[in-house]
Simulated assay, not measured.
Amino acid sequence: MGTSGAADPRAAGATAARAAVGDRDDARLLMVFCSALHDPVAVLAGIRPVAGATPLIGCSTTAVIAAGQSDVDSGVSVVALGGPGFDVTTGVSLDVSGRQREAGAEVTDRVTRAGTGRRHQVLVLLTDGLVVGQEEMLAGAYSVVGASMPMVGGASTPHPTAARHTFQFHGDQVVADAVVGAVIASDGPFGVGLRHGWRKVGEPMIVTKSDRNEVLTLDDRPAVEAYLSRLGAPPEAFADPPAFERFAECRPIGVRSRGGEVVRNVGNSSGLARGVLCSSGEVPEGGVIWPMEGDVDTVLQAADDACRDAVAGLAGAAPLGLIAFDCETRARLLGPDGQRREVRRMAAHARPAPLAGLYTWGEVARTKGINAFHNQTLVVLAVG
């Protein structure tokens, strides 16, 4: 892994790539995580002379995750996987909006078609965080691979203070409104950890009326009223959109599923006047949910637990590295000091191997069950 906080995007890409690849010529895949503040074309222009024609995927982020890196806000991080024990196939599906499920199936079919004789495989998907219907893309991917391999990844993010744009990388392309994928096949194992750090508040509630990602009523009460009342919200949160967003962004809901609770963000105030909770993912009518809350300590503990679970999945093999897909809402709760503490904790589970990652607008992880889309969650991939 290599990282750079250089202000010049071409220099940042080149520095990070040189640190990741070194003097070796057997890289099989580069994963590039890049601040949305950077010009992605210039970042690629810095990487390519170092890495040659090595297959490449990646996306934008609010900040990169890297042990010992202090200037992550404008950073570039490059992860290199290689050696004789890896085979990699990459793919991209463009113009995703309006055909999300088809696009998810399309890219997954492309990256799985080659096949491999290696024992261990993982599907990595990087989606555009500005595209609605993330679950549909992942359902399309699942329709191709089913339960045959674990799935990890995340949704690209814009920078919170800059223009609202995202981007993804595939090979020499900079794309958007796309889903980028790779199948990594290895002689060594992979481990996946999935934790969030939120705890349930009170008894479960029934989703008595919903429409995809909008929750209209909970226990036959207007959803906003029922949610805020359960959590003891201040009066201003019931009517003032900024106050609601500040309160709700770190108080998600947990949706019961066959694989356990799936966390959904409800910090969008667009439905406040109608009494509707707007989620980042689908909340099924007739389902069971819990309002949830957490604090710095529980979120940090989740980072420890996710890394521990991922390393345990290697069945005793030493990790070659950890790759983290961490929700940017968790980062806002932690603040700069808490983020540094979280990175130090994750790095401790990787040592002496490297840690790299990014902050996402939705996390991808499927190890069991069908659901693979998560909010306000940390996903860790351990490479053995």
Results as ranks from 00 to 15, higher is better:
residue 276 V to K: 02
residue 187 D to Y: 01
residue 154 G to K: 05
residue 38 H to K: 08
residue 216 L to Y: 08
residue 36 A to H: 00
residue 53 A to R: 08
residue 240 D to G: 09
residue 192 V to M: 03
residue 15 T to H: 03
residue 139 A to G: 07
residue 188 G to T: 11
residue 87 D to Q: 13
residue 36 A to D: 02
residue 376 Q to A: 15
residue 58 G to E: 02
residue 110 R to G: 01
residue 366 R to W: 12
residue 104 G to V: 02
residue 165 H to P: 00
residue 85 G to K: 12
residue 69 Q to C: 13
residue 367 T to P: 07
residue 129 G to S: 06
residue 14 A to D: 03
residue 6 A to D: 14
residue 241 P to D: 11
residue 196 H to V: 05
residue 58 G to I: 01
residue 304 D to I: 07
residue 316 G to Y: 04
residue 89 T to C: 11
residue 101 R to Y: 12
residue 166 T to P: 02
residue 193 G to S: 01
residue 349 H to D: 05
residue 27 A to M: 09
residue 11 A to C: 06
residue 316 G to S: 07
residue 88 V to L: 10
residue 200 K to H: 13
residue 231 L to K: 03
residue 125 L to C: 03
residue 210 S to P: 00
residue 296 V to S: 15
residue 267 G to C: 08
residue 6 A to W: 00
residue 26 D to K: 07
residue 30 L to Q: 01
residue 156 S to Q: 09
residue 250 C to M: 15
residue 137 M to C: 12
residue 201 V to E: 10
residue 36 A to N: 00
residue 137 M to K: 10
residue 377 T to G: 12
residue 277 L to F: 07
residue 21 V to E: 05
residue 106 E to P: 09
residue 190 F to N: 01
residue 124 V to E: 05
residue 333 L to T: 07
residue 149 M to T: 13
residue 40 P to W: 07
residue 173 Q to D: 14
residue 25 D to H: 10
residue 290 W to S: 06
residue 78 V to F: 11
residue 319 P to N: 11
residue 182 A to E: 03
residue 279 S to G: 09
residue 355 L to G: 09
residue 164 R to D: 15
residue 179 V to P: 05
residue 319 P to F: 08
residue 231 L to E: 10
residue 379 V to P: 12
residue 171 G to D: 09
residue 192 V to P: 01
residue 372 A to Q: 13
residue 47 I to E: 00
residue 137 M to G: 09
residue 203 E to F: 07
residue 16 A to R: 01
residue 358 L to M: 15
residue 29 L to T: 03
residue 234 P to C: 10
residue 115 G to N: 03
residue 40 P to L: 07
residue 257 S to C: 14
residue 85 G to P: 13
residue 37 L to S: 05
residue 26 D to T: 04
residue 205 M to D: 09
residue 90 T to Q: 10
residue 56 L to G: 06
residue 34 C to M: 02
residue 54 T to D: 04
residue 246 R to W: 12
residue 109 D to R: 15
residue 327 C to Y: 01
residue 325 F to G: 03
residue 124 V to H: 04
residue 34 C to I: 00
residue 18 R to G: 08
residue 112 T to P: 04
